[in-house]
Design a protein around this nucleic acid. Structure first.
Lengths: 150, 150
DNA sequence: TATTGTTATACTCTATAACTATA
DNA sequence: TATAGTTATAGAGTATAACAATA
């Protein structure tokens, strides 16, 4: 298939993301996590401490959006939320041992599902796909937005 | 980077889709189209006639969701919606010349934006990415959903 | 006065249920 | 009775604005 006959990227990617999210949901259910809860755990596993607003922004959510999520995760002992002694307005967020364990277990199951999907690809395509994804997913969003023509 | 250190697919793909959609919005605006309107035109450009319910399903929308969209596109002369003579309950949908032109013009501008993005990739990655995307975006959704472990 | 986290409110988007007309 | 399309309603999800505590 010639390159210029391909469908729009968003038209191919959006249904794929929908399918992946749908496939993750039952897996996360088994681990007692919502999509936002899992997002929060993943972000904290990577960068232990932050302000709530920064955490929200890093996962593409509104700061008011994740408050209930944090309440729930804290209640279940998966993360700690303690006032920063040097600025008592801010809440320092960190995973508990349980939080790290639950996050890792969920991610392992998700990885299994993903590998089954990726096994459909020829090795070269798989390599190119993952490599491209690493590049594209880290392009600053502002640089993707098209320059206005006016 | 080792393969098993990669982030979850959805965690990489979702922000990319968000960025692509955000980049498409101003382009579609210039052509007087919404995302759903563009989706409808694209689907009809590929498969000229269908029932509204089938069209809705093919673009991942509820059948009630697209009625207003069809009203608008028809009013502006971009598509025709005529009762099927053989079953007057159904509405046969087809693009007008204007509809085909507008859809093509919008897609050309979107393609330009996408090419600028893809130019960041090494040739091999780009090839693998697009090839993989063609495969993955056509995997039946049911086959992605993970088998239950119970 | 500005900022962090929070709560309450309003808004957008989508799905559900009820209706009309055809079959 | 069943189905296509439509309309009206309700629900989920999200953002906006106002508030309390701290700086």
């Amino acid at each position: 298939m010639a390159d210029d006959e391909r469908a729009d990227l968003a038209a191919m990617l959006a249904p794929l993301v929908r399918a992946l999210v749908a496939a993750e949901r039952p897996i996360l259910d088994e681990h007692g996590l919502t999509m936002w809860g899992y997002s929060v755990l993943l972000a904290l596993a990577e960068q232990p401490t932050r302000t709530q607003a920064a955490l929200a922004e890093s996962i593409g959510a509104d700061k008011t959006r994740i408050i209930g999520v944090l309440d729930d995760l804290q209640e279940r002992g998966l993360l700690q939320r303690t006032p920063d002694p040097s600025d008592r307005r801010a809440r320092v967020l960190s995973l508990t041992e349980d939080g790290r364990r639950v996050c890792g277990a969920a991610q392992a199951d998700i990885r299994t599902m993903e590998e089954a999907l990726l096994s459909r690809l020829p090795a070269a395509d798989r390599r190119g796909f993952l490599s491209a994804l690493r590049v594209l997913s880290t392009v600053p969003r502002g640089e993707i937005v098209s320059p206005r023509v006016h």
